[in-house]
Design a binder for these strands. Sequence first.
DNA 1: ATACAAAGTCACTAAATAGTGATAATTATA
DNA 2: TATAATTATCACTATTTAGTGACTTTGTAT
Lengths: 211, 211
Amino acid sequence: MEGEKTKATVRNKEKSKQRFLDAVGELLLAQGFSALKVNDIAATAGLDKKLIYKYFGGKDALIDEYIRSLDFWSNVKKENAPQEIADGGREFSKQMLLKQFDYINTNAEFRKIILWGLTESREPLKRVADEREAIGEELLIHITDPYFGKEAEMYRAVMALLISGNYYLNMYAGVNGKTFCGIDMTTTKGKEQIKKAMAIVVDLLYDHVTG
Amino acid sequence: MEGEKTKATVRNKEKSKQRFLDAVGELLLAQGFSALKVNDIAATAGLDKKLIYKYFGGKDALIDEYIRSLDFWSNVKKENAPQEIADGGREFSKQMLLKQFDYINTNAEFRKIILWGLTESREPLKRVADEREAIGEELLIHITDPYFGKEAEMYRAVMALLISGNYYLNMYAGVNGKTFCGIDMTTTKGKEQIKKAMAIVVDLLYDHVTG
DNA sequence: ATACAAAGTCACTAAATAGTGATAATTATA
DNA sequence: TATAATTATCACTATTTAGTGACTTTGTAT
């Protein structure tokens, strides 16, 4: 195993705990969740694996704490409540999708967690999904549900498709293929096409219920 | 390990090879690709693991052959060429999406392979992705590209979002969450909402370029 | 300085997993 | 029915991984 860190200079339990948590993140990014072995985590942290059992209780407890330490939605929460919504959430929806695209596209850790969440049932992974739902409900209940009225569920379903498509396409890019429906997800052009498409679909939906 | 099969009554290399391939599929469905261990595969097949090395060359070669043995797209190919296309592919697009939804939703093996393809780089998994692209190109190049003209790339991007959203939502259901944007993917109602939404988006796209 | 607790290391056990050499059981065939 | 070839098993080695008991090192309060 490569990637061992220089030895801790000072003895500090909290710092060491953090080094283990960081090591989990580093390995997750570099090799995926199936590569999270106690020996490797300890080597990456530059500490003895015994401490993982001492400080966290075990490998799984450490991994769970790592996932819980992540906070993907805090920035979204801030932007949520305010803003003038005079258009039924049209612009907000579009910007949310575009921002989310960039976030997923540039945040490899987020992508790994989302993928992990499709693979394994684990309480902290469920929490990530639950939080996304809770935050989404804010927008949906207060802004788009009232606006779309009896078409509200249709709007929700389209958003579910766009967001989850967003997730998938960004996870897909570069693993076993580059193009999806001919769109090359590894290029800026391809990414712009997807973003443009999301905005168009939102506009069409709003125009649909307006007209 | 449970799941051992009754011993083969006759000695037959081809039958035994098939038993190993079937065992891989069985384990993949029951426990996911990370649970594909030689010992378990052999136990499930009811044969000695030595034969895996003798007949296939090793675990990975067996797994690769299993993936190559799958054919998810053969049925799609048949339906592809024919049909009267007088509407620019509008009805065809909708039906393709709806059929694909049902296929993914009822075919757990397909879902596992798609998920695997997001997780691991592996030649036969790449082939599955490439085949999907090749088949999709048929529809796109001959029917929708000409119809949508300079909006063709936009249409492709929307289809990419719908299909990949389709993938994601069906993989998501029931692992770490049930709802996505409030749509409960474990219920018939939720599934119908997604299907309806896909059809609406397609119609809006066609109306958009028509009107 | 020394004694104590906390932080950290090391060498080990145990279990799981991949892979193989020797051999037995079966089948085909001369 | 002998025997050669094939199919299959078994018992073993080697490696990887998780986990632990005994120990050493370091910081700190007396």
